[in-house]
């Protein structure tokens, strides 16, 4: 028995500092944050006395909070659909091998290497809402090519602003989805296609009945990865919209609650809500991956 223990104990010792750090900084801090959200800490002066769920109840009645979630919902839907469609089209174009595939792949993926803060600067300029004489960015381009009707206030539109806000995010993340799908395509054995072809299936049928069903797990991962990035969107909004309320999302609201209003309990409560949504998305995915690996 001693021999068996001595084979794995050193390993556990070696990894334990990391495990303890993650345990404290992920799970411990989440717990602490929840405790802050249930406290009376609403000013600069720390107050850890228990207040119950009052802060959460107040948030439910807070119009800014609900508006931030509505904004996030619009953003998320457009962002997910946009990246999934763009990424899939790029992967479809590339999957059978084209000349200079490496070049196209690198170009499509390169925005991933840039920070949202840097790309936000150019997108803020491109999506400048000023109309007519003072127009700039894309609106100028539209009028130059005679498409004046396409001119619009972009992210400052009351209703569809957040859809415009998703454009830079789609620009940035489509390459990621392409890379995931491309890996998925390449993982499908050629024999499957060959067999379908032998049976007389057309190319369209092969995609519909053979290839796409095989891509389901990849599509699921892409969906979850893009979805959780979308829920957490922060830098992009700050870079494009600054702190204008029209483009408010929960992550930005949390930041302002802590930094400007010094309302720590409120900031913690918003963050906890955000965590809840991300967990609902990611935990099943982790469990699924874990089970897959066991097999």
């Amino acid at each position: 028995m001693k021999r068996v223990t001595s084979t794995w104990l050193p390993g556990l010792l070696l990894i334990s500092p990391s495990l303890i750090a993650v345990g404290i900084f992920v799970y411990g801090m989440i717990g602490w944050n929840i405790k802050v959200s249930l406290s009376n800490w609403h000013t600069v002066v720390e107050d850890n006395s228990y207040a119950g769920f009052g802060t959460y109840r107040d948030l439910m009645d807070d119009e800014r909070f609900t508006a931030a979630w509505e904004n996030l919902l619009t953003f998320t839907v457009v962002f997910i659909v946009g990246t999934m469609v763009m990424g899939l089209i790029m992967a479809l174009l590339l999957e059978k091998g084209v000349r200079a595939e490496g070049f196209f792949r690198s170009v499509y993926l390169f925005p991933m290497a840039i920070s949202f803060i840097a790309s936000g600067i150019v997108w803020r300029w491109l999506m400048n809402p000023a109309p007519g004489e003072r127009a700039s960015g894309l609106n100028v381009l539209f009028s130059k090519v005679g498409l004046d009707s396409l001119q619009n206030p972009w992210w400052q539109d009351q209703k569809w602003g957040m859809a415009a806000m998703a454009m830079p995010a789609i620009w940035q993340m489509s390459g990621y989805v392409m890379a995931l799908f491309l890996a998925g395509f390449r993982g499908i054995p050629d024999e499957l296609r060959e067999a379908a072809r032998m049976d007389g299936a057309t190319e369209g049928q092969i995609y519909r009945h053979v290839i796409f069903p095989q891509l389901r797990p990849v599509a699921l991962s892409a969906l979850i990865i893009v979805g959780h990035i979308s829920l957490k969107v922060f830098d992009l909004i700050v870079a494009v919209a600054g702190q204008q309320i029209i483009a408010d999302v929960p992550a930005v609201y949390m930041w302002q609650s802590v930094f400007e209003a010094q309302d720590y309990a409120k900031g913690a409560a918003i963050a906890t809500c955000l965590l809840l949504f991300v967990a609902v998305l990611v935990v099943p995915y982790l469990v699924y991956t874990f089970r897959q690996e066991k097999r």
Partner: peptide, 14 residues
């Protein structure tokens, strides 16, 4: 799980 969390949810304690 730690690599997916929104870091806002740990920020005040950190």
């Amino acid at each position: 799980f730690g690599m997916f969390i929104p870091y806002q949810a740990v920020m005040i304690p950190v």
